[in-house]
C-alpha cells in the first residue's frame, strides 16, 4: 500500500500577544504538537478527539490554509516545501475538502453548476472546453445523487443533506487523491448521515480516493475508518488500525473517551470512566504527559517526562508510560 500523503512531525503554534499597546508575544498556543501520520490510497484515516484537540488545525495545515510552524508534508513521496508552481497547482487539485456546515460551504450567490465547476475552472490544465465542463459537472452531480436538471438552482433551494452532496461533488470533480472530511456528517440528521456515509464509502471503492475523516462521534468514525488516531491537546496519543483500537483502547484517555460514548442499546450501558477536572488550556500545558492531571492511572513519571509514541503491536502505537 503506497502512502499518498504523509505528515512528519507537524507542529502548529499560534502566538499569543499581550493586551498592551505595543504587543509582545507572551507565549504560544500549541494547537498541534508534533503529529505524524500518513494517508494511504483508497483508505480512510479517522481522527477523533474533543473540541480544541487540534484535529481541525491539522486539516487546515494539509489544505495549506495554515503554514505549519515546523515539520513537513510529503505528497507522493515529495516534500511540499520543494514544490514548484505547477506541482503546487496539482497538489491543490489533488487534495480537496468537505466541511461541517454545508450552508457556509456553498457561496449563496453562485449557481450549483458554477460552485461545482469552480475547482475545474481554476485548475484547467487539460484546457477543457465549456461544454466539457458542463458534462463533467452533470456527471459528478449524478455521482453524488443530485439531478443535473437542478444545476441552475441556488444552494438555498436544497436541503441540508443535498447541500452536503453538492459540496462533495465540488470536491470530487477534479478527481482528487485525498478528501479531507472535517466533521462532514456531524451536522446531519441520523437518516441523512447514513445516506452520506454510504455514498462516501461507495465513492471510495469506485475512485480509490483516500479520506481523512475527522469527527467527534466515535460510532461514525468507526463505520468509516481503516486506521484511527486519537488526539488530545494537539498530540496523537494512540494510533493504529481502527478495529484494534476500538477493541483494545490502550491509552487511559482512549478508554475514557470510548466509555463516554453513548450506548446503542440500554443493555450495553457500562459504568463509564468519568474524567475529573477540565481540559487544560493549550496555552498552558502541564509538564510531562498532557493527560496526567485527569488520568486515573497517573504515576510520578507522568508529571515529569512526556511519553513518546511507541509500538505496542505492528503499526500500532501508544504514547503512555504504562506501555512499552
Amino acid at each position: 500500500m503506497s502512502s499518498l500523503l504523509e505528515l512528519k512531525n507537524i507542529k502548529e503554534y499560534f502566538p499569543v500577544m499581550n493586551a498592551r499597546i505595543f504587543q509582545k508575544v507572551v507565549g504560544y498556543i500549541r494547537a498541534v504538537d508534533d503529529v505524524s501520520f500518513s494517508l494511504n490510497e483508497g483508505r480512510t484515516f479517522g481522527l477523533v478527539g474533543e473540541s480544541g484537540c487540534g484535529k481541525s488545525t491539522i486539516a487546515k495545515v494539509i489544505l495549506q490554509l495554515e503554514k505549519p510552524t515546523a515539520g513537513a508534508i510529503y505528497f507522493r513521496g515529495k516534500a511540499l516545501t520543494g514544490f514548484k508552481r505547477g506541482e503546487m497547482a496539482d497538489y491543490h487539485a489533488s487534495v480537496q475538502a468537505v466541511f461541517q456546515d454545508p450552508t457556509s460551504s456553498l457561496n449563496p450567490r453562485m449557481r450549483v453548476a458554477d460552485i461545482v465547476a469552480e475547482p475545474l475552472v481554476i485548475n484547467n490544465s487539460q484546457n477543457n472546453s465549456r461544454s466539457d465542463i458542463t458534462d463533467m459537472v452533470a456527471q459528478t452531480l449524478m455521482q453524488v445523487g443530485i439531478s443535473p436538471d437542478r444545476s441552475k438552482c441556488f444552494p438555498h433551494e436544497f436541503s441540508g443533506g443535498q447541500r452536503q452532496r453538492i459540496a462533495l461533488a465540488r470536491a470530487l470533480i477534479v478527481g482528487p487523491g485525498v478528501i479531507i472530511l472535517d466533521e462532514s456528517v456531524s451536522a446531519l440528521d441520523v437518516s441523512i448521515q447514513a445516506q452520506i456515509m454510504n455514498l462516501l464509502r461507495d465513492l471510495q471503492e469506485e475512485l480509490n480516493v483516500a479520506y481523512l475523516f475527522i469527527a467527534h462521534d466515535l460510532a461514525t468514525v468507526k463505520y468509516m475508518s481503516h486506521r484511527l488516531g486519537v488526539m488530545y491537546l494537539g498530540k496523537l496519543l494512540e494510533h493504529g488500525p481502527a478495529g484494534k483500537i476500538i477493541e483494545e483502547r490502550i491509552h487511559p484517555y482512549t478508554k475514557a473517551l470510548f466509555s463516554a460514548a453513548m450506548p446503542s442499546h440500554p443493555d450495553l450501558i457500562k459504568e463509564e470512566v468519568v474524567l475529573t477536572g477540565e481540559v487544560p488550556s493549550a496555552f498552558d500545558l502541564p509538564e510531562g504527559c498532557r493527560f496526567h492531571p485527569r488520568c486515573d492511572r497517573a504515576m510520578k513519571i507522568c508529571s515529569e517526562v512526556e511519553p513518546d509514541l511507541k509500538d505496542v503491536a505492528e503499526n500500532y502505537q501508544v504514547a503512555c508510560h504504562l506501555y512499552p
Binding site: 447514513a194 462521534d217 468507526k222 463505520y223
Partner: peptide, 23 residues
C-alpha cells in the same frame, strides 16, 4: 425501525448502514 438500522454502532460491526431515502 429504519432509524435504528441507520445508526452506526460502536459495539458491533455493521457491514452497511441502512439509510432512509428522501427527506
Amino acid at each position: 425501525a429504519a432509524l435504528m438500522r441507520s445508526l452506526p454502532k460502536l459495539e458491533e460491526k455493521v457491514e452497511r448502514l441502512a439509510s432512509i431515502e428522501g427527506q
